[in-house]
Each structure stands twice: as structure tokens, then as C-alpha cells.
Design a protein around this nucleic acid. Structure first.
Lengths: 209, 209
DNA sequence: AAGTATATACCCCAAATTGGGGGATAACAA
DNA sequence: TTGTTATCCCCCAATTTGGGGTATATACTT
């Protein structure tokens, strides 16, 4: 049937693969096409398989990780939706996967309804995520309320983090270049660093800005 | 009942307010506390109302916008979950609201199940979002496939955008300082800019990196 | 009243960075 | 063969950076 969404699985756990296969096969609007142990195998069959959706494990035994695989797929076939399935919910992994182009991020589950709902949400143009992942993604936008920096210092550091120079910061905040320098000196001493990039790195990792 | 989540509404549409009020009142685990036309009013009663959740309209008639209101609430009462309800899904508004500290973002609907599901998801530690919003948030992580920059140039520019200097970029990419300079010169000529901050601004706005 | 934090501004100085100019090699693709 | 990419080198002037000071005014806390 033409309207069916073609699904390919990249997952090296035999049991989970069978499980997903059965779930997908039981729904008319999705077509189970194939499954592979590794990205390498999947990629060599991609033109034949013509998937609309790839369900991708993030930790694979092959040489190419799920994240690298996602990056590759999205660069060559941007129309394919990649949904990550994983047991890990380490924040850096999640964000890397999303940056690599993943359209959704599910924690592994053998629950039939959950998977089908996620595929439906994808079809509606959504981005299926488990609750915990959604929270992490949203948290990524929030800033830390315990920042040692004053509001003005945050203003300055945000601009520095955008690549602005002392004088550009000064112009944008309507203060003198010397004042922006003073702010930066104070930021450095509060954060115990002594360069722009260290300050940005620390402030970003602790979400001070 | 002590386990009930206390909900306050900030919404200036009379009809929608009544509608939400009824929906919340019909579920035992949520307690409708109060509703207000404006952030100003809501804030002056916040100590009395002690909300766990605030449903906040984003376009309000009062002087304080929903986004400013969210920022204020999260700075004073970080434990309160703010969920935005809106008809707008302009991407900048969404991201601003999330950065301001919103825990969820719903497009207005009079659908009972949708609202209750969202509140439940919030209680489970999730971040309720309508499909379209989830897609936008995820898209925010993706990079533009039509970037004129080569992969290596993107690597360089990403590091520059993190505040790294020419020499730091060189060290991190195991190339000489001169090479990183050459890459940057090429980036500038491709993007038609002639400074770090212009390059970062353009590349970010077009999601080249 | 004294102390602390914040925001503003100025001075000096040496070292590093930046942006622009040039040229070069090698690999690979169209 | 021309174009793109990735790598490296030299030169140079202007700007930026980071560190050292000092100073004033406001505001909040104790």
C-alpha cells in the first residue's frame, strides 16, 4: 500500500528487534521493511529499503554509533525521520542525538501503545519524547537560579558568548568599554577563570547564562 | 486535600477561563484556586493562593506579558511550574518562554482530555507540549542542510562560537593556527562577513551550525 | 553607621589576537 | 581542467585582551 510509512530498525538486541517488528507489523499504516545489527549494514541497503522512518538504537556494537549514524542519514537523506531508542538518558547523549538530527527520543520499552503513539505523533509532525527526555530538553532552556553572577554580568556574558568584543558589548549595553571590561573582570574573578572561553564554558555548563 | 496540586490561571479571555476552570474542577487531584486577568493581580495574591502550577496566557492585556511574568515567577518561586497556553506558535515566542522558565507550552484548545493529560505529564516530571511545539523545539537543535560551509568549516565555526580563539581552535582540531585562520577567512568570504560575531550571528540565525 | 554588592567609568601596559593580504601543496570531484 | 576542500606558511597594522590600579553612586543588610 502506498500510504504506508516504511520503517527500518537498527538495533542489535535480538529480542527487542523481534518485539518492535511485531508491534510495527500489527499496524496497517506502518510497514516493517527490515532490521539490521549495525548502521553499516543498514546504510548499504538504504536505497533498496527506502525507509520513511528509522528506529535507531544509540549504543551499537558496530563501528558507527547511533549518533554518528543519525548525522550521516540526515546529511544524505534529510527526509527520513530518525527516532532514537535507548536505555540511556544521559543529557549529553540526548542533546548530541538531537543536534545530529534525531526527530524523537524514546527510552526503550516493550509497551505496544507507547511505540504506536510515538509513531503517530511523528506522522502528525510532532517530536515523540518520553516525559523525562522532554523535561531535559526544556531544562536545557532554563538558566540556573543559583548563578553567582548579577543580572548585568549575565547580560555581558551572554553577549561575550555570542562572540561580541568588549567594545561591541559596550555599544550594545550603552555603557563605556571600560565598564564592560570591569564587568568581565568581575565575572572572571567570580567564576575563577581568566579568559572568555573558560568563562563561557563554565557558565554554560552550570547554566549561569 | 493535601495531595492536590493547586492551580492558578492567568488568562484574560473570559470564556477560556471558565472552560479551564470547569475542566480542572472535575479532576480530584487538581485544585482550582483562582484565576486572574493579569500577572499584576495574580502576583499580589500569590502568597495567599500558593499555586503549584500556573497556567499562563502569553498575550495579556496587562502591562506584564506572559513571558515577563514567567521570568518573574521562576525567579521568586522556582518550585512553581508555569505552563504557557497560547494561540501563537511563533518560534521566537516559544523559545523565549522556555528560556524564561516555562515547563510546558500548549496551544489553546477546549479539549478536556488534552489539558488533563498535560497536567498529568507535568506531575510525572514531563514537559507537556503540543506536537507542533515539540517539533519546533527539536528543530532548534537541528542544523540547516543547505549550509554553504564545509564540515570542517562548521567545526571551526562551532568552536569560535564557543568563544575559542584561533590558537585554541587549532589545538582542539589538531591543526596549525594558520590553518584555522585560513578556514575562518574562507568562512568570512562565504558568509560575506568580516568578524567573528557577525559570522556567529549569521550562522546561528540560519542554523548553519 | 558600617559593610557589601552592584553598576558605572577611567588610567596604564604588555602580550595576544584579529583581519586582511599574499602564496603553496595535495586530494578529490565535477 | 577547474573547483572545492583541507592543510600550511609569511607579513603587517590595528585591535583586543587580561591584569593591575582607583573612583563614584546607589542600594541593601546588618
Amino acid at each position: 500500500m502506498e500510504f504506508q510509512k516504511r520503517i527500518v530498525l537498527i538495533e542489535d538486541d535480538q529480542e527487542l528487534r523481534e518485539c518492535y517488528k511485531l508491534m510495527i507489523k500489527s499496524v496497517d499504516k506502518y510497514l516493517y521493511v527490515n532490521s539490521y545489527d549495525s548502521c553499516e549494514e543498514a546504510f548499504s541497503n538504504i536505497s533498496k529499503d527506502r525507509p520513511d522512518i528509522i528506529l535507531m538504537d544509540i549504543q551499537l556494537t558496530g563501528k558507527i554509533s547511533g549518533i554518528e549514524g543519525t548525522r550521516f542519514i540526515k546529511s544524505k537523506y534529510p527526509h527520513i525521520d530518525v527516532v532514537i531508542i535507548t536505555v540511556y538518558d544521559d543529557s549529553e547523549l540526548v542533546f548530541e542525538a538531537l543536534r545530529a538530527g534525531a526527530s524523537g527520543y524514546l527510552t526503550k520499552s516493550y509497551n505496544y501503545l507507547e511505540l504506536v503513539n510515538s509513531l503517530d505523533e511523528l506522522a502528525r509532525g510532532g517530536a515523540p519524547m518520553s516525559s523525562k527526555i522532554a523535561r531535559m530538553v526544556i531544562h536545557n532552556f532554563h538558566s540556573n537560579p543559583n548563578s553567582p553572577l548579577s543580572e548585568r554580568e549575565k547580560d555581558v556574558l551572554r553577549l561575550i558568548a555570542e562572540g561580541k568584543s568588549y567594545s561591541q558589548v559596550a555599544d550594545l549595553l550603552f555603557i563605556s568599554k571600560e565598564t564592560s571590561k570591569t564587568h568581565i573582570k568581575n565575572i572572571y574573578s567570580k567564576l575563577q577563570v581568566n579568559s572568555k572561553s573558560e568563562a563561557i564554558e563554565l557558565a554554560k555548563s552550570k547554566r549561569y547564562i
